[in-house]
Design a protein around this nucleic acid. Structure first.
Lengths: 145, 145
DNA sequence: GCTAAAACGAGAACCATTCTCAGCATATGG
DNA sequence: CCATATGCTGAGAATGGTTCTCGTTTTAGC
């Protein structure tokens, strides 16, 4: 057991030093970060950090309900603290994704009955509108070839 | 120009035979299909079909607003006809994703002002609840290591 | 200190997707 | 009817983010 004491939530095991560093970087950032970006930023600190461990811990933090994740059209995953409730407009043509400054879903208050959830324990939700951004509408003749 | 005549929608260029085949398979399927699954099913028909073309046409159909796409946690993309308005419960631990039989968002009627959209032309939206499925809650001791 | 168990890092492996490029189909103009 | 330009197609190679492997390092408990 390489765990450090520090029990912020009885529901969750204590976090290791690298996991705390990772969370801290995510919280300081004002945007979602990819695994690679996170790795780069962590390297600049004093601790050693391997890419594999960054991904390992991202998975663990996500399972613990501390980190949320979203996939961009290019396949990258981007991460943010769970409590951040941002949603996005994403272009199906160029892949550009930008924050949508409203949450159209009554978070938490979702009228989701327990019956519908069937034992599923919700942690966060993602809402995304996909379409064509202005510049793609203008540049593309929209031909199927 | 290898396009075949057949103008179903003045807003959109006519579709080629492979694009129509692709759409047909998606419409017959009662679930989202991945690019690879789509490719397999198309191979079974009479026309020849290459994987590259399947992906090429999926991209084009998506841009034309005929097909929607969603990324699974394992990195695969799954496709469906645009008009299908399904949403999902997805487990952050095992990656299992199942349909959620309600749409908590007032589709179309989203109170999204044009100001917020800033020229963005919406085609479809995705809504997904991420959390822990029952079996993952039971099996995992939730340790950070 | 010493040992067993857990976490770690570097690099290889993975795999869905995209790219490359030579060949072929379509449409048109001569 | 044939020549030619255009651009779609498929096989296979390349790409790139993420995961796996495995030998090493760190931690916890004694």
């Amino acid at each position: 057991m390489a765990q450090h004491s520090y029990p912020p939530d009885p529901d969750v095991m204590p976090l290791g030093p690298r996991q705390r560093a990772l969370l801290a970087v995510l919280q300081e950032a004002n945007a979602e970060l990819s695994g690679q970006e996170l790795h780069e930023r962590l390297r600049q600190g004093s601790q050693r950090h391997g890419l594999a461990t960054v991904y390992r811990n991202l998975r663990l933090l996500q399972r613990s309900g501390l980190v949320r994740c979203r996939k961009l059209p290019n396949g990258e995953s981007v991460y943010a603290p769970l409590e951040r409730d941002d949603h996005h407009l994403t272009c199906v043509s160029c892949g550009h994704s930008e924050p949508l400054p409203i949450c159209p879903v009554a978070t938490g208050g979702l009228g989701l009955s327990k019956v519908l959830l069937q034992g599923f324990k919700p942690l966060f939700h993602t809402f995304e509108i996909h379409g064509l951004c202005l510049s793609c509408q203008q540049s593309e003749p929209l031909s199927h070839g």
